[in-house]
Structures are given as structure tokens and as C-alpha cells.
Amino acid sequence: MNNSNPLHWSFDYNYGAQNPQFAQELIRILRGYDPEVGTHGTQKVQAATHVYDILPNYWRGYSRGGVREELRIGTAIIERSKNGDNLWSYSVQYENTTSGENLEIKFRCSDEDYRPLTGTWSVDARNSGDDTYSRLSCEGYLTLDSEVRLRINDTEISAGTVDTSVKLTCNWAFFDVIPALAQTIRASGDGIDLAVLEDLEQLRRKSRLGFLESIQTPLPLDGYYLYGTGLLPSYWWLDAHGDIAIASTFFETLVLREKMGDRR
């Protein structure tokens, strides 16, 4: 791993008042992750778990001026396995110590590179803040007319309708969609279109996944970007082992800390 700076602009936040320093933390986390444990090359994972630490970018509102021992402000754990019915089951745990929002997200996808959503899904939000709101459960499904329906405390609403010409996936499936479609995206030139149900609640109808560039620092990575209506650009960095090592928005950066999984 190359420790020299500068980091790529899409995840370079090693300045300002971040303490501990961003680059130092990012490299420390990546160093702790052992790529040999996971999957290699084109072999398909049948069950895998990736654990990401969440680092704040520029924003320092999480600290309120206090001293912190670590920069990490949350964790995302993505578990998925392929079932006997040839569907992928995802379970995502997202913990954010700043908002207090802890999400448990469950969904299923067809066994396709785009990981299209199928069946029903659920979001269980629990909040550790000190105010009235502490928990919300939401279930969802896609109708035959491609309408996204959400059920919240027995009240059902529409979250919009998906254009049938594009696949609907969830942002938390990108950790598999991008590795699976990497060559397709690169070959496409302008990128590929898809619809995203962000956190299984917000429909982003028109989104585009494209290739950004390859870099060697802090390790060899291929970059991909996502943007679209209602979406700020995010950058996804795929390592040589087929894992998203870094995912960065304008606001936060997810860094791969650990992975566990079968290799078939």
C-alpha cells in the first residue's frame, strides 16, 4: 500500500480540523482489512459480509468541538447470501452516532448483475436520540405496475413509479453491482442507467453509473461514479480483489474494514 499523499480528490479530506487525520485513519482502516479472506477474480460469492467504517469528510458537526479518540462516526455492515430460490437476501446494518439513526435494512434481489429488487423489503429505523421519536418500521414492495409502495405504521403511500426500461436496485446492493458490472460500465462510455431506491425509501428514477478513472494511491483502485436526479455524485473505488474499498460522497467516506465470506 502506498502511503504517500495526495489522496484522490474524491476522498481527500486530510485537512482542516479533522482530528485524528483523515488520511491516517483511512489508511489505518484499509491496512487492517485482509483481502485474502474474501473472494478473488471472477469467482462469485455465495455469502459474504463487508464491514465499513464511516468517516466524516469536511463536516465537523458530529464533534461539537469535543475531543474524539477516533474519526469513525458510524459503521455499515452488509451481509448477503444466495438462497435456494436463486435470490440474494441482503441484510444491512447502518449505525450513525451523529444522527442517532440505526437502520436495519432487509431486501431481496434477483440473481442478476444489476441486483434488481424483488418481493418485499423492510427498513427498521431505531433512533438513540433523546427526543420523542425512537423507532419507525417501514415495509415496501413493487407492484406489477412498477409502483413502489411503502407501508409505515399501517399507512401505505406511493414512493413513485419506476420506468420499466431501467432496473431498480438499492444503493446498498452497489457493493455487488459495481464489481459485477465493472467491465460493462467501462465499455459503455457514458455509463449505464438504473433506478435506485435509496435506503429502500427514496426512489431516484434516473441515475447513472459510470467509470471515473484508475489510481494507484493509496492502493490500486478503479473508480466509478453515480449521479442522477435527487442524487449528489458519489464515488466508488473497486480494489483488485473485487471489493469496494472506498465509497465516498460529498459528506462521508465508507472505508472497508473487514470482509468475511465463502468463495465458490
Partner: peptide, 12 residues
């Protein structure tokens, strides 16, 4: 109803 785990300030 909700004012953040860390109180909401200017951004975020």
C-alpha cells in the same frame, strides 16, 4: 420529535 443524537447545528 427529533433534534439529532448530536444536536442539529448549522449543517448535516
Amino acid at each position: 420529535l427529533y433534534y439529532g443524537k448530536t444536536d442539529i447545528g448549522a449543517g448535516g
